[in-house]
Simulated scan of single mutants.
Amino acid sequence: MSLFRYTRAGREPDSPRPPHSPLLWIGLIALIAGAVVLAFAWLAGWIGRDRVTAQTFTDTIEATGAKHAGFRRAHSKGVCVSGSFQGTPDGAALSSARVFRQQQVPVLGRLSIGGGDPHGADASARVRSMALQLVTDDGQEWRTAMNSFPFFAVPTTEAFLEQTRAGIPDPATGKPDPAKQAAIAAKYPSARAFGAWAKSAPWSTSWANTDYNGVNSFRFIAADGTEQAVRWSMLPQAAFEAMSPEQRAQASVDYLADEFAQRLAQGPVRWDMWITLAEPGDAINDPSIPWPDTRRRVKAGTLSLTAMQPQANGACNNVNFDPLILPSGIAGTDDPILAARSAVYSESFNRRERETASGAAPAGGARR
């Protein structure tokens, strides 16, 4: 109830009220202060052990392997790349984002491999990734992080944390507990499907001939306000070549980076961006469910990469490729995995920035 009442002359105090006891006010202040402290602790992940927070998630990722100060917690090994993006009229019809209308948009990106070892062997990584930052002439940014797998392994943030915890090595063996991993596969059909993909899908011989999928759903907003749920992929113009087990066994530690440098020496390496349009009934907020192959697809642009740098001194090293940094004309969905990725990327970025600032990170970083 307001302490004031309105009259034609304006506001005036209500009739005097009996004074409250000082103890009552002290108790109220203490209650509010306590609530603020509890809320802060809850958000920080200090209480509520089973809560999924960015801190908890990043801690769990770090526990799956050796910690490497100053490096990304996932996809730790990679190279910086740069080039440009040229949109198409079809892309511009779906989204009002300037990126599809500007003649050429400069691109800063990163090609990487899965895993948390910045010194791991390129050819031994099952998952390969592409992250991009596009900045248009009006100052808007679009950041996207894509992977070579066609769908996500689990449907929810809680399941994602369960899966990550199952990958923590057992102190007795130094390897993840097979029983825990089997339990995840038994609990989540999508995890079984992902395992089948990982075992059966052929490995590409290059970053350049790999498909990269956004996996999560987003919303394209047209100039007239029309919205369309979409997923996107970067499909290579280079012909696919399968990598044999013998090639993987004989490949050098920096095989993918060395091979990509050789390609760039011959000219730009290109991918076409294809947008898949959702139809009623498609899973918008569950990245573990692929959309049918019959869905309409639109070519929205072409990515051309022309240069590569080691990540240690490359411009991409200090970029957080948060998938929810989006320009006007593109918006996120309620996909919980998308929100989790954004939060964990931020937490990982902040940790490695602190490590670098404190001198905990190695001088000069890794070769790649």
Rank of each mutant, 00 (worst) to 15 (best):
R5N: 10
G10H: 11
W25H: 10
I26M: 11
A30E: 02
I32T: 12
G34C: 08
V36G: 14
F40N: 01
A41R: 08
L43W: 01
A44I: 02
I47S: 11
A54N: 00
I61Y: 13
E62D: 15
F71V: 07
R72C: 03
R73V: 12
G78D: 00
C80T: 15
S82D: 11
S84Y: 07
G87L: 08
P89N: 08
A93Q: 08
S96F: 06
Q103T: 15
P106N: 07
S112A: 15
G116Q: 12
G116E: 04
A121M: 01
A123W: 11
A125L: 00
L132S: 07
L134V: 08
T136P: 01
G139P: 12
Q140E: 12
R143F: 03
A145Q: 05
F149Y: 14
V154T: 14
T157G: 15
A159G: 14
I168Y: 03
D170Q: 07
P171T: 09
T173M: 11
A179D: 05
A182H: 01
A186F: 07
A198W: 09
K199W: 00
S200R: 02
W203V: 13
F218G: 06
F220V: 09
F220A: 15
D224N: 15
G225D: 02
T226K: 15
A229S: 09
V230M: 13
M234R: 00
Q237K: 14
A238Q: 13
E241V: 15
D258T: 14
D272E: 14
L277H: 11
P280R: 04
P292C: 05
R297M: 13
M308R: 11
M308W: 03
C316T: 04
N318T: 14
P327A: 11
T333S: 15
D334S: 14
D335A: 10
P336R: 05
I337K: 00
L338C: 09
G359R: 09
A361N: 04
G364I: 13
R368P: 01
